[in-house]
Structure formats: structure tokens, C-alpha cells
Design a binder for these strands. Structure first.
Lengths: 112, 112
DNA sequence: TGCAAGATTCTACAACATTAGAACAATAAG
DNA sequence: CTTATTGTTCTAATGTTGTAGAATCTTGCA
């Protein structure tokens, strides 16, 4: 990964709203590598995150607690995906997100 | 530290030029905590960084290899300082920078 | 088939970021 | 003292980002 890629990752996390979205996903779905998609949403701490009680509908739930328009949130998801931080899949009305832990690891690595 | 503080840190690192400046400082002066200011510039790998051969004049040397105006670089230094990532001191024509490793650590902490 | 709900895309615009240049202040060197 | 060097600040131009709303697409359900 090049410097430009890292700056892109940091840019994706540089907006407070987007960082909040990322952390909501990260803190709830940072399943061990190898976990099948669809099982990612394991609630770790319901008190700190409003994405609760369900494994899917991440988008809608995040919309419900974010006070931003859907289009804006969709845009933020795209930015996070584009930086490689998350991957998203739609399967019908189920919206599944997964944090790309390799990328998170490489940030930590980058910072030595 | 709050979410907003983290987003500010990430914003400081979100610009490629500024990230480059930060890394030049980081890779050359990440001295152990407690090291006195003025002894931070220990060259670790001269081949990957153009800040060479001296402990001070960081500003000038970074200018020399950055292809940006002095005023722009000064501005970038300010952003990095404002985010808490570095501290700078001038003593005459000696410009000394230090990476705030606590902040770097707290990023790593945040991402885990 | 038709309607409702979920998510995306397009458009537009205000706000903010990046940048250089000129003027300046502080220091060093001759 | 004068001149060159170093870094800051101000101003202004240009480019990028964050955001909402309307239109659109996709899926599920009656």
C-alpha cells in the first residue's frame, strides 16, 4: 500500500459522521476473519451503539440514529468502501457490512 | 478523547502531502518517551527519507524535498500540531519537531 | 400487477481545504 | 549595520467535501 492509499483511508475516517458510522459497524461486526458473511453483526456492547437487536438492516438502523439523510449516509458508506475499510453486500432487503480488518491492521502497522 | 478528536487526527493525516511530512518526522524522530527535545532526529533509514544528516532544520529540509511553498508547509505543520500529532519549537534558526507518541498510541488503541 | 420500503444516483450549493505569493518578524552572518 | 535566511501571517484563487432533495432503481408483499 502506498502513501496515497493511507491518506485515502485517513480521509475516509476524517469526517466525524463517517467515523461514527465506521465505528458502529466496527464495534459490532468485527468478527474473526473467516466468519461467513451474514454472521458479522455480533453485538458487543449495546449501550455504546445504536445498531442493536438484529444482524441486518444496518443501513436503516444507522439512518435511524444518525440525523442525516439517506443519500448522505449512502455517500458515506461509499467512501468507506472506496477506501477499502468496509465491504457491503445487499441481498434483497438485507444489507450486510463487514469491516476489512486487514486494512485496519495495516493502519496500525503503518503507525509502526 | 472524543470521536471529534479522533476525526481531527485523521483529518490531519488525510492529506497526502501532510501525511508525508508527518511520516518524515515520525520515521526520523520517534525517540523513546522521555528523550529530551533536541535529540529527536535519529536517522533510521536514510534511503526512505530525505531529512538527513542533521538533527535540526527540519522545516527547511522538508521544504527542500516537498515541492510546496514555505507558507503551505508552515500551514501543514500547524495542522499537525493542532491535531496534537506533533509539537514544534523554534530556537533561533533551529526548528525542532517531535511526534506525540501518546496520540499515535491512542489511535492504535481506538482501532482495536 | 401495483404499491411500499429500502438504497442509490444525480444535481446543486455552501462550507471548507489546499495552495502560492507578498509582506513581515526574528535571527544569523558578513 | 546590512543583508540573507527562516518561518509566520494574510489574502486570494482554486479545488474538494458534505449535505439534502428529487428522481430512480430494487426488492418484498398483497
Amino acid at each position: 500500500m502506498k502513501l496515497k492509499d493511507y491518506s485515502k483511508i485517513f480521509k475516509a475516517l476524517s469526517n466525524e459522521q463517517r467515523l461514527k458510522i465506521f465505528m458502529m459497524i466496527y464495534k459490532n461486526c468485527c468478527a474473526p476473519k473467516g466468519t461467513v458473511v451474514g454472521a458479522e453483526f455480533r453485538i458487543k456492547d449495546e449501550s455504546t451503539c445504536c445498531v442493536k437487536g438484529s444482524l441486518d438492516k444496518a443501513f436503516t438502523k444507522i439512518c435511524d440514529c444518525m440525523n442525516l439523510s439517506r443519500s448522505t449516509i449512502s455517500h458515506h458508506f461509499k467512501e468507506l468502501q472506496s477506501a477499502g475499510l468496509i465491504t457491503c453486500e445487499r441481498e434483497g432487503q438485507t444489507y450486510r457490512c463487514k469491516v476489512n480488518e486487514d486494512v485496519v491492521d495495516s493502519i496500525k502497522d503503518f503507525l509502526k
